[in-house]
Write a protein that binds this DNA or RNA. Structure first.
Lengths: 270, 270
DNA sequence: AAATGAGTTCCATTATTTGAAACTCGGTTT
DNA sequence: AAACCGAGTTTCAAATAATGGAACTCATTT
């Protein structure tokens, strides 16, 4: 009991402090932190000290401010490599982006949100963390819907319940019912669209990346604007995108679980 | 006393587990972790549970494996924005890379190591996390030496003591004494070179990014190969790079500490 | 010179962590 | 089929580490 937010003992509380610093968005003084914190001064002080010792926070002794530390960056780098599809998918995403000449997104599901883990844009060369690491809504993005389409039961229900269903545009699917019906269509077709549901003028086609077990372990989308493209035009890219998603799925299976191979039902297709 | 590695109570130990998972490099089973861990089974078990609850680890229930969690990626995204020079430096790094047509690195010091926080390469467009988040040795890289050159006293000594002084190449400075002498030169000139000290055939020129207080808050380097460039050729780029470093230093001052402005001695140079 | 306030330390109390051992549960061996 | 095995999970009294009210520094303000 005594649950503030997390409930997971000391470690949970310390991590809460990390989030607080992250939420502040810029280097933060101790007193600012104290104000926004549920912990008494001495306690918070010790947390901040520990986290700083550990490299999770960095302390600027000139300004007396704390910021998120570089150890996080190192850990995130490792997280990337081992728990995201990005390193596996890279060559395929590169090739796909090159071939289609449009923006390509690689995303995974993080609880009820979409986490973008990679992005390739034909024109602007790089966006670093600013795109990777970003989160977005699941219910009104192509990649989000493509992944949700391959879930069911209580898992899906729980996620659908957590969506905000904010009506960003005219076409936003703003209820769980509409969304469920859309998800059925997507599952039938094997791909789905974003019909300006999140941003006016922005459309995309998205495909899930499916594990052998049929779970969506990620999704790939090609995004464009209504100026340049039509939904039909994007739909013509589906075969090309499918090449990428199946290749990524295959490699993910091999790489992440090289020893324990599964009852590979669908092997040998080409 | 009782010092395993960190010593910072429960939080330190939990973070140690995170590092362990990171070091493993791929999804890891509980028993593998247990083998490599100084903690008894029940203790480790609770840590892993807590970290999973907290989203710092993710658990794959099909394979019974743990991997670094996505919360890290989100936190790192924030760390980037607030505690690295990357977002501030971006436009200048872009412009510099474009002008010089060579690879540009932006780095910061993380304890005794160099942490690369951004990279721009004229030819290949993107490398995402694979470059950002990477760490390298301080004593034999251009950026590392450029930053060390602006440290002194016990801080410097402590860092010099932590270097491995592995002799990567013929020209590697393989002792603290040689390095100290080199650092003096760099401080005098305001810039330094990597004379194939880390990798044969790879040379670079590096400049520190200096705060008003004269501390090196980062470094910028232009890297090339002996095939294409000479040290003298790189040296000719120093004025152009200086433009970038001073601009970044100025913006860093303004952005990170917008309220408390310093006695800006060097303002108005175009 | 006194007062303020941010940041830091102290220390007895209290709650949490600790870890050996016991248990559960799939799967394998006899 | 019964016994076994090993990975993973839970239990609980003892030990340890976290807690936070209050006192203290030290720089800045009035």
């Amino acid at each position: 009991m005594a649950g503030t937010t997390s409930g997971d003992g000391t470690v949970g509380k310390a991590l809460e402090v990390l989030d607080q610093v992250a939420a502040y968005g810029k280097p933060v003084r101790f007193s600012d932190l104290l104000e926004a914190s549920p912990f008494p001064k001495a306690t918070l002080y010790r947390f901040v000290q520990t986290l700083t010792n550990q490299g999770m926070l960095s302390y600027d002794s000139e300004r007396h401010t704390y910021a998120l530390g570089v150890r996080l960056v190192r850990l995130a780098h490792a997280a990337w490599q081992q728990s995201s599809l990005a390193p596996i998918a890279r060559p395929y995403v590169d090739a796909l982006a090159h071939d289609v000449g449009e923006t390509v997104h690689l995303a995974q599901l993080d609880h009820a949100q979409v986490l973008y883990v990679d992005k390739r844009n034909a024109t602007t060369p790089i966006e670093m963390f600013s795109s990777a690491g970003k989160v977005g809504p699941a219910y009104c993005t192509g990649v989000g819907k493509a992944m949700l389409a391959y879930m069911d039961g209580p898992d899906l229900t729980s996620i659908l319940d957590q969506q905000s269903y904010h009506r960003f545009t005219e076409t936003t699917l703003a209820s769980a019912e509409e969304l469920r019906s859309e998800l059925r269509d997507i599952r039938e077709n094997g791909y789905g669209f974003d019909r300006e549901e999140h941003e006016p003028g922005i459309i995309c086609v998205a495909l899930p990346i499916l594990s052998d077990g049929g779970r969506a372990i990620g999704a790939l989308s090609v995004t464009s604007s209504t100026d340049r493209q039509t939904l039909a035009g994007l739909e013509r890219l589906v075969p090309r995108i499918t090449e990428a998603t199946t290749a990524i799925a295959r490699d993910a299976q091999d790489w992440r679980f090289p020893d324990k191979q599964r009852h590979t039902a669908n092997a040998g297709t080409k």
